[in-house]
Design a protein around this nucleic acid. Structure first.
Lengths: 197, 197
DNA sequence: GGACTATGAATGAAGG
DNA sequence: CCTTCATTCATAGTCC
């Protein structure tokens, strides 16, 4: 029974956290490999696990920081939006209350360049760089594909995310039996369900 | 110490279900925000609660359908699988043996695009997109998706890294309590953290 | 009280 | 990097 997904053992987690704490954010391919090799002493693991771990950890860490930062800026308004998993709060401009929004652009300056840590590579010159590649040419470790190495830099193949969000219409949030209708909420089912079945 | 977890009041639940029934699946940041604000009329609630609610509800809804479907396919097979203690086995990938690593990318065709509903945003355009992001940058600042790619991307290959590879140093990959020292790992934090803190 | 269920919360894994 | 999906963990509520 193959464990569907990897789950770090306490030791592995500890090591990963420590590396992260020390500043590692975007491990290069060789770093990932080495880390993986090391962690495999404590349990089954693949390069991609390490790769994804850092990616997710960094993202979620940052989101947490943003939240805290926001918290400070919003020292008063309670209104319940304190802790949000990922997402953000857009400008909510209701005349009624809360207005904890920031001048945008405060948060994109957070992450520093990734710091560094080096895991020495046996012999090959590691100019290759990041993770992506490593995923490919690893013997028994696979990497997520979808990244391309370019000039030593790892680029994700994506360029241009499309956002399809037609923003129109007021939405109606269903209200429970008796309650004042919400001012500007409207619901716009644009496309039926979504449960393709 | 543990903050009890949120539990929807009957009214809140009713509203959420209604929205879901109407097709909402992946509410955008502003939608979550508005919904949360509205629901807070009926009890304490945070954005993340709303966010998670939709995530979970959708996932479990889908999982239920999947299971039923599977049931049909297996109408004949008795296999005595009747006694499934807890949950169920959803995707039981009987890959059996080698749980090697294959670049995934095989089983993707299932999910449709999320439907849509719109919570009209007072004025700001909510180009922001959905869930995740929304919680983060409350400033309604959504990244100009494409722009950031330039320097915000995964540059794994930081130019400041020094490769110091001495075969001798015992590595400083944090090890857990008792374990055999790893052979050649080295850790070289060149620049402090990165966590702006 | 332990087994089980429903479900909030967290996070690994992918895709774009 | 951002978004979404699938799993899994954790626990309140329930039944016996």
């Amino acid at each position: 029974m193959p464990r569907p997904r990897w789950s770090p053992t306490p030791q592995q987690l500890m090591i990963l956290q420590d590396l992260y704490r020390k500043g590692l954010r975007n491990p290069t391919s060789s770093q990932v490999q080495k880390i993986t090799t090391h962690l495999s002493l404590y349990g089954k693991i693949q390069c991609k696990n390490v790769f994804y771990w850092f990616q997710n950890h960094k993202a979620r860490d940052r989101q947490k920081l943003r939240k805290e930062l926001m918290m400070l800026h919003k020292i008063h308004k309670n209104t319940s939006d304190d802790d949000v998993p990922h997402q953000f709060h857009t400008t909510q401009n209701t005349n009624s209350n809360l207005e904890y929004n920031f001048p945008p652009s405060t948060f994109h300056t957070l992450y520093p360049q990734s710091p560094s840590i080096l895991v020495h590579q046996g012999e090959g010159k590691d100019t290759s760089s990041s993770s992506t590649q490593m995923m490919n040419n690893m013997g028994n470790v696979d990497f997520p594909k979808h990244c391309v190495i370019e000039n030593g830099m790892m680029r994700t193949n994506v360029q241009g995310w499309i956002l399809m969000m037609t923003d129109m219409g007021p939405i109606s949030i269903p209200s429970c039996s008796s309650n004042k209708p919400l001012e500007t909420l409207e619901l716009f089912p644009i496309k039926a369900t979504g449960i393709k079945e």
